[in-house]
Amino acid sequence: MSSKIRIYHNPACGTSRNTLALIRNTGQEPEVIEYLKTPPNKAELVHLIENSKLSVREALRKNVEPYETQKLDQPHWTDEQLINFMIEYPILINRPFVVTELGVKLCRPSELVLDILPAPQLGALSKEDGEVIIDQDGNRLK
């Protein structure tokens, strides 16, 4: 059975790794897109942002070099210009975005992915920092 789950993933990010683990905990293998290697095109990025009900600024990662050097915190930047920066510098795209048949969500914190996963959780799962998200009975703790 092919997965209808897609994650825009950065393996260097703990939140992204936790989100991927939560998806896999359902017994499904998502399509993993390492967005720094294979960035979304402009239409895909706009789709992710719009369908997650975020503003462009909310989807923008702020603690990275291009944000600071380009002074993207200034209010004169239009959404179109910010999207273009995100296409040029994919590190500016906040992550992980997850797409399922139930919706699109920026999964920060990682347990937000549970709101859009179509399958029940199979077993206990903890974040990398040890915080238990799903108990041994498969119940969500948050």
Rank of each mutant, 00 (worst) to 15 (best):
M1D: 14
S3C: 08
K4G: 03
H9L: 08
H9G: 10
N10A: 12
N10E: 14
P11S: 13
P11E: 09
R17V: 15
N18T: 05
T19E: 01
T19M: 03
L20A: 12
L20D: 11
A21F: 05
I23D: 06
R24E: 13
R24Q: 13
R24C: 08
R24A: 04
N25R: 05
T26D: 07
E31I: 14
E31W: 06
E31P: 09
Y35T: 00
P39L: 08
P40S: 02
P40K: 03
N41S: 00
A43R: 07
A43I: 03
V46K: 00
L48M: 03
L48G: 02
E50M: 05
N51P: 04
S52N: 06
L54V: 08
R57T: 03
N63Q: 13
N63I: 04
V64D: 10
V64E: 15
E65R: 09
P66F: 06
Y67T: 03
E68V: 15
E68G: 10
T69A: 05
Q70I: 10
Q70K: 14
K71I: 09
P75I: 11
P75E: 04
H76A: 08
T78P: 02
E80I: 11
Q81M: 07
L82C: 00
I87P: 01
E88H: 12
I91Q: 02
L92G: 02
I93P: 07
F97P: 11
F97G: 11
V99I: 12
T100Y: 06
T100S: 15
T100M: 03
E101T: 15
L102V: 10
L102K: 15
L102M: 13
G103A: 04
K105P: 02
L106M: 04
R108N: 09
R108E: 11
R108P: 11
R108A: 06
S110K: 01
E111H: 05
E111S: 03
L114C: 01
I116L: 06
L117R: 00
L117E: 01
P118N: 03
P120Q: 06
L122V: 03
L122A: 07
A124I: 10
L125E: 05
L125T: 01
E128H: 06
I133D: 13
I134V: 15
I134S: 05
Q136G: 14
Q136Y: 13
R140H: 12
R140T: 07
